[in-house]
Design a protein around this nucleic acid. Structure first.
Lengths: 187, 187
DNA sequence: AGACGTAAATTTACACTGTAAAAATAACTT
DNA sequence: AAGTTATTTTTACAGTGTAAATTTACGTCT
């Protein structure tokens, strides 16, 4: 049995070390900087040290994305998000606080959505959304209400990350915040 | 004066030829396949033939994205989109009909948003949205209504492209379409 | 028409990248 | 203590983007 404490591998827990450095690079220099060789170089190991743990670059990025979905699930959990409104707020706030990671989580050409760890992580996060008591309006199926809500929240997150909402907010006469736009979706 | 008819360059109009092959590759094999060498190879020219026209890969992809924004503007023009609702429908339908191109248009790490051609093209498209008569609800600034509308439409487009809306639609008891979700946003 | 200047395209070269295969190293098990 | 296994490095190779120099062809001008 390998002790999961600290130094079960040669150089400590390289798996987590690689994910940590990759995440730092991600939020510092963007997704384009996530080259396998650059990650291992910054972690102080050889170029191919990640292979036994993640297989290839896609595997590493998928694991990183899974970590993101886990954190998002945590932020949207009933403990942290009492009212439905809080779930939407958590979603958008997570995206804005971790723009690189959030973007990676939905970049299906850089990650493998079928990767087991990633798939279960994302499903759990999406389940938090599906569990929302869809404030059903007149004559709208719960699925439609669900999709509409998710689309609006996700759209706000994506547009905000791309800096496309900033001009609108700046131009607004009333003091406008993204939080207000989110809250508006839950009413 | 060079005749802008057809063969003003050595091998015909290489600029457009490269954009055409790149676009075919984009919708066939996704953004990840848009390597500069692969594009020029498929176009039947040498590996560096794109440089005089586009500078580098980012320049070529930016030109391609600009082309996408132009087509999107066209689809959202008053001639094709009479009512506000039609603008939203045009937006989402364009995204679903050209998933690769639409994705590229918002991938700010693969394109240069400050590229003159791209900047003017995207601004024109966004202006079509800003020109919408924001069905102002009670006590909401027009900018907020604008942002909410755009976010919902954009969110629907992005989620649909990623295949994340399909399960919801399939699970819906009532026959649910994306068009219905868009129309719901304009009411 | 013929020579020139200029733009377009190719050739060449180099520093990167991802990853497969073989070799070496250190850990754990018995 | 010896052997087995998992981890890491070394080595190698095909592919990438792009800068620089060279070749090619077009347009222009006397």
């Amino acid at each position: 049995m390998k002790t999961p404490t600290k130094s079960s591998y040669h150089h400590g827990d390289l798996q987590k070390a690689l994910l940590n450095t990759a995440r730092l690079m991600l939020e510092k220099d963007g997704i384009a900087s996530l080259k396998l060789r650059a990650i291992t170089r910054n972690a102080g190991v050889s170029a191919t040290a990640a292979a036994p743990h993640f297989g290839n670059l896609t595997g590493l990025l998928s694991a990183l994305a899974a970590q993101g979905f886990d954190e998002l699930s945590e932020a949207m959990s009933p403990e942290h998000a009492r009212e439905p409104r809080d779930v939407g707020l958590a979603y958008v706030r997570f995206a804005i606080a971790n723009p690189g990671l959030f973007t990676l989580m939905f970049r299906s050409d850089a990650i493998d959505p079928d990767h087991p760890v990633l798939a279960t992580a994302s499903e759990r996060a999406f389940a938090r959304l599906a569990a929302l008591p869809t404030c059903d309006q007149s004559g709208i199926s719960p699925e439609a209400a669900m999709a509409s809500l998710w689309a609006k929240v996700h759209g706000l997150a994506v547009l905000a990350i791309d800096g496309l909402l900033a001009p609108l907010i700046r131009r607004s006469s009333t003091a406008l915040t993204i939080d207000q736009l989110v809250e508006e979706a839950f009413r």
